[in-house]
Amino acid sequence: MPRWLKRYGDILLVFGAVGLLRLALPVPFVIHAVIFAIYTMAFSFLIGRLGLVSFGQPVYLSIGAYGTGIYLARFGTNPYAGLFVGVVVGILFSLLIGSLLLRLTGDYFALANLALCAVGFFFFQKALVSVTNGDTGLWYLARMSSTPILNLRQPNNVFVLALILAVLVWLLMKYIDSSVYGAACLAVKGNETKLQLLGYDTFGVKWLAFVLANATAALAGALYAIYFGFVSPASMELVRAPEVIVAALLGGAGTLYGPLLGAFLYIAMQDLVSTHVLYWELFVGIMVVLIMMGDEKGITTWLKPIFRSGWQLVSRRPKITRTP
């Protein structure tokens, strides 16, 4: 097997499977799930690699969405430019917010993010109403121009773009895992003081991770903005804060496949349950409790043995026995 296939074979397999899902499942579902997976990967990196829990992720998602939305509603028409603006706004916002919030630790960090989300909601709904149209939101689907390649006015192409971006984000996470920087992130999670006493700038390590993760969340928001063709403050309502946490923990935080799996399961459940049950949020709450009773690695802890034995069943070769 060539080296690149060994290294990246898994990703071809996984995202190939996602591509195939697109043929079998409704387009809105797969688009939603893939974009949500990007959002979840970003959060999973924060919690699993850095040990930072944030209850305010919708604000980073929405900053990206509004960056794109305001650009497309008021300035330009090219959706790719809109996407770019959304991500840049996300980067600038997390640079600024990170420099403030990262001085807090543990629960305070989590709660400060929650507060930030509430403040953000107020701004986009009330304070900036002349720019954002308040609850009505901004509608610009008709304004978006067509592009010669991968025309984003067609949902199919949004899916392709989202899938490509999800692969890139996944590759970035995988690369970080293998770098000294990835080890430094884990070291911050495990024992920040010790890392400091090895001469590392731990604030810088956290800041970069914060910006990477939340710019990725902004990217997801920007993709939503292009797919839906409108933005409204509903995306940063506080009740939406747990969803990304549930999805990340469902699949297993800090693992590579976990966020993908968690995102798909979550969106699937949301679609199925919310059509039959009025109080979908109640369902989410119960799920949070169940997940918290497990550990950080989520359902992958009990899925792995199942997959492994399944794999052994199909790949069984009679002569080779492995001694432990």
């Binding site: 970080i176 293998s178 770098s179 000294v180 920087y181 990835g182 080890a183 430094a184 001469g199 590392y200 700038d201 810088g204 390590v205 970069l208």
Partner: peptide, 14 residues
């Protein structure tokens, strides 16, 4: 004595 973020990012741990 002064590991930079860029250096850390571009160096493989192994």
């Amino acid at each position: 004595g002064r590991p930079s973020l860029g250096g850390m990012f571009l160096t493989e741990l192994v």
